[in-house]
């Protein structure tokens, strides 16, 4: 199934940031992702939805090669970032991940201070030379993470002492501190309460102006609220990809319709 034609039609105005061609992923003998083709546009929020185990998180982790850390995982096909194949032998995943940041399902602040959490990325990538520069990056990132006002007085308190929602925003701030071009979010709100979820969703909307955001979510409402583009995965296949409004109001595939109306999932 190739939904490229449809998506290309509606994306004439924006540039493609990430493009996947015939991507297959295997975990040992399990075929987890089957022939996925997708073009993710720049400066948009793209949501991956689908029932659990459909491969949406797996595909997300392919985009910054986090799957490399799993021994049995094998990826075929091409994923292009700005027209460069990220699975090319010459690509260093370390450099790639600086460009393609990631936020995880469970907030995972390091057992360090808030300041050090955010400064970690810039330090390892050598983005700043002086203490002042780092201070500046930390403040900027925490502001972008919409958490500056809450933590500015206790930057040296441990990051693990924050509430769940704060921790997740701290993790987002930590991810944007390395100046990525793409932000991958793997169910970033699944461990949060509704109020914290609303705050994070608002933040995601803000981030769209600077980054291409790809978000995996199990909540269709969340996808509808935050994304402009939606991809529906089912059993390792990309069933349908298009504007969020289209997918939710006028799905072209019967499986998408079944999922959206709650008959499968």
């Amino acid at each position: 199934m190739n939904n490229m034609l449809m998506s290309e039609k509606k994306l004439e105005t924006t540039q493609t940031k990430i493009s996947a061609k015939d991507v297959n992923v295997y975990y040992g003998d399990t075929h987890a992702i089957k022939d996925v083709n997708v073009e993710i546009p720049e400066k948009t929020v793209t949501a991956f939805i689908g029932p659990s185990g459909c491969g949406k998180s797996t595909f997300l982790r392919c985009i910054n090669r986090m799957n490399d850390t799993i021994d049995v995982c094998r990826v075929t096909g091409d994923i292009l970032l700005d027209a460069e194949d990220i699975y090319d032998k010459r690509v260093d995943p370390v450099q790639l991940r600086a460009k393609v940041g990631m936020v995880f399902q469970k907030p995972n602040p390091f057992p360090k201070s808030i300041y050090d959490n955010v400064a970690y990325g810039p330090r390892i990538h050598g983005l700043a030379k002086t203490k002042a520069e780092i201070d500046e990056i930390v403040e900027k990132s925490l502001r972008r993470g919409a958490i500056w006002d809450e933590v500015k007085d206790r930057l040296h308190a441990p990051g693990t002492g924050l509430s769940g929602g704060q921790q997740q925003r701290l993790c987002i701030a930590r991810a944007v501190a390395t100046e990525p071009e793409v932000l991958l979010m793997d169910e970033p709100c699944s461990a949060l309460d509704p109020i914290a979820t609303a705050q994070v969703e608002e933040l995601i909307d803000d981030l769209r102006s600077r980054y291409s955001v790809v978000i995996v979510t199990h909540s269709m409402q969340q996808a509808a609220r935050v994304s402009q583009k939606t991809a529906f995965f089912h059993l390792g296949n990309l069933v349908e990809f298009g504007d969020t409004s289209d997918i939710f109001t006028n799905p072209s595939d019967s499986r998408t319709e079944s999922y959206i109306t709650g008959r499968i999932g």
């Binding site: 090319d88 450099q95 460009k99």
Partner: peptide
């Protein structure tokens, strides 16, 4: 601006050092 302008296909000096 170590990476902004550079291609992913070339490894910059900073990354070489880290590697």
């Amino acid at each position: 601006a170590p990476r902004k302008s550079s291609s992913l296909l070339s490894v910059d000096t900073q990354t070489q050092k880290r590697n």
